[in-house]
Write a protein that binds this DNA or RNA. Structure first.
Lengths: 341, 341
DNA sequence: AAAAATTACACAAACGATTGCGTATTTAAT
DNA sequence: ATTAAATACGCAATCGTTTGTGTAATTTTT
């Protein structure tokens, strides 16, 4: 049954009309008669015609393609965001193509190059950990390709952003620990290379300051990537202190969960001895015991917002807004890890 | 600095040569002189030339695009598989565009239609739960577009497949429960609409049969989608039985974890009273207490294998192999949920 | 019924890159 | 010094759609 792809020209020949008539009939152009239009559609169905978007795109200079550059798709936060992007995009008739940087600057550059060649209509990016030069992304703007960052954004180049209020969320999370009576609150901090983790650290400090709690640098543990291993290590350090903390605010759920496991392993109680707060509300936070109090950052909604913002930029390119920042709500979800009964 | 896209023609004009020379120089064609080639590359860099793959693809009739149709990207198994696909694809110079079916047949059909129009070189699909008509996928084959299924494959149309030995894995998992002394083993079964879940049920039964354990239909709980809620419900049913099971083999980790939570809530011990085995080795299985014994199905490798198989089909189209099935290894990971000390 | 307006379609030039073939120039062979 | 063989590049068609403009045929207007 292997058919060969049927084109507009061939259909034109079959109906003894010109290709332009077929093309217009297919898009129900008013200048084509009713019966002709109907006949073309009928034939198209019969021969199994699929438009060749390559040709169409080339002619119209529009690909309906959105490129997404992201560190790792198998992280819940990111796959949720992509899910949101895909949902909005496909409803609007856009394709989504995905590139993983694996947090490598070199790969991110290569991704950008491929994307550039693909003539994508727009780009959504979440920066790799390593990235601190942004020329490969600025290139999109220089070529008039709309660019939207989300979560791990970059303040060095003017662009659209979708973020949450990391600072405020951290204040809220740390404040919550204070409100349940914690006096010595530690923080597992993410890579300070990235603004989101700097902001969370700032928020942590701000909450302490507001409540007249001295900031103790020894209670701040800096990590490379907030991995499970680093979370355990951080917890161990805290546990070995002569004057150990009674609360920990962690910059992600992974490190928070490892910390809880470590605390339990040491024979201490969560939250009785040490209360713990995470960040992102991943599914894992409901499985650990006690369930983890965390910040819901609504990754799916961030993805949706990013896609909507991008599509708006693509379709209203005449406006050419320099930059717009959308801040997505965040919620503190209080669970067992901070519920001292 | 908004530049307008520079084309081969423009570069040709700048160098006073023909476009074909530029094109050939860019791909280092031997028929172009050394210095000319070098000069073209220099100019290309200077003016920031990016090839327009639309035009190139149209001419070459190749898009280097792989379409992936998948139920939901925010499930760990699937995002891992996509990660594997993306890794292999991008190394081979292919783009990956993603479509979520959300387990809806209608959306899957729509996805296939979009993919068809995008002129993708090949398609990788993991079927939606609802799907039981495969015409939209057979259409790819009819148009000579290679198609590879993975995990949730379809035996109704001849095609390439990447799967694991679900039957064997289930035998292994159930056998493991038997080997640690379980006498009454229950099974939380997935939607029997899909082969993988039928196979896991078959494997469960086979293990019992081999060990001369009678099959008790009341110990088999059928679910719609193996969700957390269904896992809890199934566990509740088992727990209320006068003669409750002492082991449960679950068709995925999610339901297994809910089951463990339910068992613990009822005041019983895992594995002391009831041992539990899951399926897929998601990260969650390491967080639940006790850690979950499960089958590692190597989703990432499945994705890699699917991509490699697909690319091979694309690039050796002359061969036109009708179908090839790759079976990925699977491993039983024994953890606390079945370790009766 | 003649003029004007509308309808329904055809022509042909794009979009940007690729490639088979042809040709002028240079290098090598006899 | 001739002829043969490389070398280095230009010409022009092509991929499949889209779209501005042109033009018959039909309908409407007065």
């Amino acid at each position: 049954m292997k058919k060969t792809k049927v084109t507009i020209k061939e259909m034109a020949k079959l109906l003894n009309v010109s290709p332009s008539t077929i093309s217009r009939a297919l898009q129900n152009h008013p200048s084509i008669g009713k019966k002709m239009t109907a006949e073309v559609h009928r034939l198209a169905k019969k021969v199994g015609y699929y438009p060749n978007s390559l040709a169409s795109n080339l002619r119209r200079k529009k690909t309906n393609l959105i490129g997404v550059i992201i560190p790792r798709i198998d992280r819940y936060f990111q796959s949720s965001a992509i899910s949101g992007i895909e949902e909005v995009a496909s409803k609007a008739g856009y394709y989504v193509t995905i590139f993983q940087s694996n947090n490598s600057y070199e790969r991110e550059k290569e991704n950008a190059r491929m994307l550039m060649a693909s003539q994508a209509d727009g780009v959504i990016a979440c920066l790799a950990m390593e990235t601190n030069n942004y020329d490969h992304l600025a290139a999109f703007q220089e070529n008039n390709i709309p660019l939207v960052f989300f979560d791990r954004v970059c303040y060095e180049i003017e662009s659209h952003k979708v973020i949450i209020d990391d600072f405020g969320a951290a204040v809220k999370a740390t404040g919550h620990l204070i409100s349940i009576g914690c006096k010595r609150i530690a923080h597992i901090a993410g890579n300070q290379h990235m603004a989101i983790f700097r902001d969370r650290l700032r928020g942590y400090k701000e909450a302490l300051r507001k409540n007249n709690i001295p900031i103790d640098d020894k209670l701040i543990c800096f990590t490379e990537d907030l991995s499970s291993m680093e979370g355990s290590r951080a917890a161990q350090v805290f546990l070995e202190m002569q004057n150990r903390p009674d609360g920990i605010f962690c910059s992600n759920d992974t490190s928070a969960i490892s910390a809880i496991q470590e605390i339990k392993k040491a024979g201490l109680k969560v939250p009785g001895d040490i209360a713990v707060v995470g960040f992102s509300n991943t599914p894992n936070s409901l499985i650990i015991e006690p369930a983890l109090t965390t910040i819901d950052d609504h990754a799916f909604e961030m993805g949706q917002a990013a896609a909507r913002l991008l599509i708006r930029q693509i379709e209203e390119s005449q406006q050419n807004i320099a930059s717009e920042t959308i801040i997505i709500r965040n919620d503190l979800i209080v669970r067992g890890s901070t519920m001292k009964s």
